[in-house]
Protein backbone atom coordinates (compact mmCIF):
# COMPACT_ATOMS: atom_id res chain seq x y z
CA UNK A 1 0.00 0.00 0.00
CA UNK A 2 1.29 3.43 -0.90
CA UNK A 3 -0.17 6.93 -0.71
CA UNK A 4 -1.30 6.96 -4.37
CA UNK A 5 -3.12 3.68 -4.08
CA UNK A 6 -4.82 4.76 -0.84
CA UNK A 7 -5.75 8.15 -2.32
CA UNK A 8 -7.14 6.36 -5.39
CA UNK A 9 -9.30 4.01 -3.34
CA UNK A 10 -10.53 6.87 -1.18
CA UNK A 11 -11.30 8.94 -4.25
CA UNK A 12 -13.38 6.04 -5.56
CA UNK A 13 -15.32 5.67 -2.30
CA UNK A 14 -15.76 9.42 -2.12
CA UNK A 15 -17.21 9.60 -5.63
CA UNK A 16 -19.78 6.95 -4.79
CA UNK A 17 -20.74 8.79 -1.58
CA UNK A 18 -21.01 12.10 -3.43
CA UNK A 19 -23.37 10.50 -5.93
CA UNK A 20 -25.54 8.91 -3.23
CA UNK A 21 -25.67 12.27 -1.45
CA UNK A 22 -26.49 14.07 -4.67
CA UNK A 23 -29.39 11.70 -5.36
CA UNK A 24 -30.81 12.21 -1.90
CA UNK A 25 -30.34 15.97 -1.74
CA UNK A 26 -31.63 16.79 -5.20
CA UNK A 27 -34.24 13.99 -5.11
CA UNK A 28 -33.80 13.47 -8.82
CA UNK A 29 -31.62 11.46 -11.17
CA UNK A 30 -31.24 14.04 -13.90
CA UNK A 31 -27.97 13.70 -15.75
CA UNK A 32 -27.10 10.43 -14.01
CA UNK A 33 -26.56 7.24 -15.97
CA UNK A 34 -27.77 4.14 -14.20
CA UNK A 35 -26.18 2.06 -16.96
CA UNK A 36 -22.72 3.17 -15.91
CA UNK A 37 -23.43 1.88 -12.42
CA UNK A 38 -24.89 -1.34 -13.72
CA UNK A 39 -21.63 -1.83 -15.60
CA UNK A 40 -19.64 -1.04 -12.46
CA UNK A 41 -21.73 -3.54 -10.51
CA UNK A 42 -20.91 -6.21 -13.10
CA UNK A 43 -17.25 -5.16 -12.84
CA UNK A 44 -17.17 -5.52 -9.06
CA UNK A 45 -19.16 -8.74 -8.96
CA UNK A 46 -16.90 -10.43 -11.52
CA UNK A 47 -13.64 -9.06 -10.10
CA UNK A 48 -14.29 -9.66 -6.44
CA UNK A 49 -15.24 -13.33 -6.63
CA UNK A 50 -11.92 -13.89 -4.88
CA UNK A 51 -13.66 -12.68 -1.73
CA UNK A 52 -14.74 -16.32 -1.50
CA UNK A 53 -11.38 -17.86 -2.34
CA UNK A 54 -8.55 -15.69 -1.02
CA UNK A 55 -8.13 -13.41 1.96
CA UNK A 56 -5.71 -10.52 1.32
CA UNK A 57 -6.39 -8.11 4.15
CA UNK A 58 -9.27 -6.71 6.13
CA UNK A 59 -8.89 -3.43 4.23
CA UNK A 60 -9.11 -5.28 0.92
CA UNK A 61 -12.23 -7.25 1.86
CA UNK A 62 -14.03 -4.28 3.39
CA UNK A 63 -13.40 -2.11 0.33
CA UNK A 64 -14.58 -4.80 -2.06
CA UNK A 65 -17.81 -5.29 -0.13
CA UNK A 66 -18.24 -1.53 0.17
CA UNK A 67 -17.92 -1.06 -3.62
CA UNK A 68 -20.45 -3.79 -4.32
CA UNK A 69 -23.00 -2.66 -1.73
CA UNK A 70 -22.74 1.07 -2.47
CA UNK A 71 -22.97 0.58 -6.23
CA UNK A 72 -26.00 -1.68 -5.79
CA UNK A 73 -27.50 0.99 -3.57
CA UNK A 74 -27.06 3.65 -6.29
CA UNK A 75 -28.84 1.43 -8.81
CA UNK A 76 -31.62 0.60 -6.35
CA UNK A 77 -32.13 4.27 -5.46
CA UNK A 78 -32.46 5.38 -9.08
CA UNK A 79 -34.54 2.47 -10.34
CA UNK A 80 -36.85 1.79 -7.44
CA UNK A 81 -37.03 4.69 -5.00
CA UNK A 82 -39.61 7.41 -5.44
CA UNK A 83 -39.50 10.31 -6.13
CA UNK A 84 -36.08 9.75 -7.72
CA UNK A 85 -37.31 6.88 -9.85
CA UNK A 86 -39.80 8.99 -11.82
CA UNK A 87 -37.13 11.62 -12.60
CA UNK A 88 -34.84 9.09 -14.22
CA UNK A 89 -35.09 9.48 -17.98
CA UNK A 90 -34.50 6.11 -19.53
CA UNK A 91 -34.62 7.42 -23.08
CA UNK A 92 -31.55 9.62 -22.41
CA UNK A 93 -29.61 6.71 -20.94
CA UNK A 94 -29.78 4.34 -23.84
CA UNK A 95 -26.21 3.07 -24.28
CA UNK A 96 -26.42 -0.50 -25.60
CA UNK A 97 -24.17 -1.96 -22.99
CA UNK A 98 -24.59 -5.63 -23.77
CA UNK A 99 -23.65 -5.16 -27.42
CA UNK A 100 -21.02 -2.44 -27.03
CA UNK A 101 -19.48 -3.20 -23.65
CA UNK A 102 -20.19 -6.57 -22.06
CA UNK A 103 -19.99 -8.81 -25.14
CA UNK A 104 -16.82 -7.27 -26.66
CA UNK A 105 -15.08 -7.32 -23.26
CA UNK A 106 -16.06 -10.96 -22.76
CA UNK A 107 -14.55 -11.90 -26.14
CA UNK A 108 -11.40 -9.86 -25.49
CA UNK A 109 -11.00 -11.35 -22.01
CA UNK A 110 -11.41 -14.90 -23.32
CA UNK A 111 -8.77 -14.33 -25.99
CA UNK A 112 -6.24 -12.73 -23.64
CA UNK A 113 -6.85 -15.25 -20.90
CA UNK A 114 -6.28 -18.15 -23.27
CA UNK A 115 -3.14 -16.54 -24.71
CA UNK A 116 -1.83 -15.73 -21.25
CA UNK A 117 -2.69 -18.93 -19.44
CA UNK A 118 -3.22 -21.57 -22.09
CA UNK A 119 -5.83 -24.31 -21.88
CA UNK A 120 -4.08 -25.98 -18.95
CA UNK A 121 -3.94 -22.80 -16.91
CA UNK A 122 -7.54 -21.91 -17.61
CA UNK A 123 -9.33 -20.52 -14.60
CA UNK A 124 -12.85 -19.19 -14.65
CA UNK A 125 -12.21 -16.77 -11.80
CA UNK A 126 -9.13 -15.40 -13.59
CA UNK A 127 -11.12 -15.08 -16.80
CA UNK A 128 -13.83 -13.09 -15.06
CA UNK A 129 -11.17 -10.99 -13.36
CA UNK A 130 -9.64 -10.12 -16.74
CA UNK A 131 -13.12 -9.40 -18.12
CA UNK A 132 -13.73 -6.97 -15.26
CA UNK A 133 -10.53 -5.08 -16.05
CA UNK A 134 -11.63 -4.56 -19.64
CA UNK A 135 -15.18 -3.67 -18.70
CA UNK A 136 -14.14 -1.15 -16.07
CA UNK A 137 -12.07 0.77 -18.60
CA UNK A 138 -15.20 1.75 -20.54
CA UNK A 139 -17.83 1.63 -17.79
CA UNK A 140 -18.02 5.43 -17.57
CA UNK A 141 -19.04 5.79 -21.24
CA UNK A 142 -22.84 5.74 -20.65
CA UNK A 143 -22.40 8.47 -18.02
CA UNK A 144 -20.30 10.63 -20.34
CA UNK A 145 -22.91 10.22 -23.08
CA UNK A 146 -25.74 11.25 -20.74
CA UNK A 147 -23.67 14.25 -19.67
CA UNK A 148 -23.19 15.26 -23.27
CA UNK A 149 -26.98 15.13 -23.78
CA UNK A 150 -27.84 17.27 -20.75
CA UNK A 151 -24.84 19.52 -21.35
CA UNK A 152 -25.28 21.52 -18.16
CA UNK A 153 -23.49 19.64 -15.42
CA UNK A 154 -24.75 20.02 -11.89
CA UNK A 155 -22.15 20.71 -9.23
CA UNK A 156 -22.29 17.41 -7.34
CA UNK A 157 -22.64 15.39 -10.54
CA UNK A 158 -19.45 17.03 -11.80
CA UNK A 159 -17.69 16.24 -8.54
CA UNK A 160 -18.77 12.61 -8.56
CA UNK A 161 -17.44 12.08 -12.09
CA UNK A 162 -14.25 13.97 -11.25
CA UNK A 163 -13.46 11.68 -8.31
CA UNK A 164 -14.32 8.64 -10.38
CA UNK A 165 -11.71 9.71 -12.92
CA UNK A 166 -9.18 10.75 -10.28
CA UNK A 167 -9.34 7.23 -8.87
CA UNK A 168 -7.90 5.57 -11.95
CA UNK A 169 -5.43 8.38 -12.55
CA UNK A 170 -4.08 7.87 -9.00
CA UNK A 171 -3.79 4.15 -9.71
CA UNK A 172 -1.45 4.95 -12.61
CA UNK A 173 0.76 6.89 -10.18
CA UNK A 174 0.53 3.89 -7.84
CA UNK A 175 1.85 1.57 -10.57
CA UNK A 176 4.71 3.96 -11.38
CA UNK A 177 5.55 4.14 -7.68
CA UNK A 178 5.41 0.38 -7.24
CA UNK A 179 7.54 -0.30 -10.32
CA UNK A 180 10.22 1.97 -8.90
CA UNK A 181 10.18 1.07 -5.24
CA UNK A 182 8.99 -2.51 -4.95
CA UNK A 183 11.36 -5.41 -5.24
CA UNK A 184 10.13 -8.23 -7.53
CA UNK A 185 7.42 -6.01 -8.93
CA UNK A 186 5.85 -7.47 -12.06
CA UNK A 187 4.45 -5.36 -14.86
CA UNK A 188 0.86 -6.11 -15.81
CA UNK A 189 0.25 -4.74 -19.26
CA UNK A 190 -3.46 -5.51 -19.58
CA UNK A 191 -4.09 -3.61 -16.36
CA UNK A 192 -1.86 -0.71 -17.46
CA UNK A 193 -3.47 -0.37 -20.89
CA UNK A 194 -7.00 -0.49 -19.47
CA UNK A 195 -6.10 1.92 -16.67
CA UNK A 196 -4.64 4.42 -19.09
CA UNK A 197 -7.61 4.06 -21.48
CA UNK A 198 -10.00 4.56 -18.58
CA UNK A 199 -8.18 7.72 -17.50
CA UNK A 200 -8.01 9.07 -21.07
CA UNK A 201 -11.79 8.84 -21.35
CA UNK A 202 -12.00 11.48 -18.61
CA UNK A 203 -9.51 13.92 -20.14
CA UNK A 204 -12.12 15.96 -21.98
CA UNK A 205 -14.33 16.04 -18.90
CA UNK A 206 -11.40 17.11 -16.67
CA UNK A 207 -10.64 19.97 -19.02
CA UNK A 208 -14.13 21.50 -18.76
CA UNK A 209 -14.37 20.65 -15.07
CA UNK A 210 -11.25 22.61 -14.17
CA UNK A 211 -12.20 25.42 -16.53
CA UNK A 212 -15.55 25.85 -14.78
CA UNK A 213 -13.96 25.63 -11.32
CA UNK A 214 -11.44 28.31 -12.29
CA UNK A 215 -14.03 30.70 -13.60
CA UNK A 216 -16.43 29.90 -10.77
CA UNK A 217 -19.16 29.85 -13.36
CA UNK A 218 -21.60 27.19 -14.38
CA UNK A 219 -20.31 23.93 -15.71
CA UNK A 220 -21.54 23.44 -19.24
CA UNK A 221 -20.19 21.22 -21.96
CA UNK A 222 -19.78 22.54 -25.49
CA UNK A 223 -22.06 21.30 -28.22
Amino acid sequence: MNIFRLAGDMSHVFSILVLLLRLRVAKNAQGISVRTHELFLIVFLTRYLDLFTTFYSLYNSIMKILYIVSTASIIYTIKFQEPIKSTYDKSQDSFLYWQFAVAPCAVLASVTHLIGSGISGFSFIELLWTFSIYLESIAILPQLIVLQRYREVENLTGNYIFFMGAYRFLYILNWIYRANFEAHYQHHWVVYICGVLQTLLYVDFFYYYFKSKKSGGRFTLPT
Binding site: R5, H12, Y56, S57, E126, I133, Y171, V190
Partner: peptide, 10 residues
Protein backbone atom coordinates in the same frame (compact mmCIF):
# COMPACT_ATOMS: atom_id res chain seq x y z
CA UNK B 1 -0.93 -17.43 -9.61
CA UNK B 2 -2.56 -14.38 -11.18
CA UNK B 3 -1.33 -13.94 -14.72
CA UNK B 4 -2.50 -10.46 -15.55
CA UNK B 5 -2.50 -8.49 -12.39
CA UNK B 6 -2.19 -8.03 -8.71
CA UNK B 7 -5.45 -9.14 -7.13
CA UNK B 8 -4.67 -7.24 -4.00
CA UNK B 9 -5.41 -4.06 -5.93
CA UNK B 10 -9.01 -2.97 -6.18
Amino acid sequence: NPVFGDHDEL
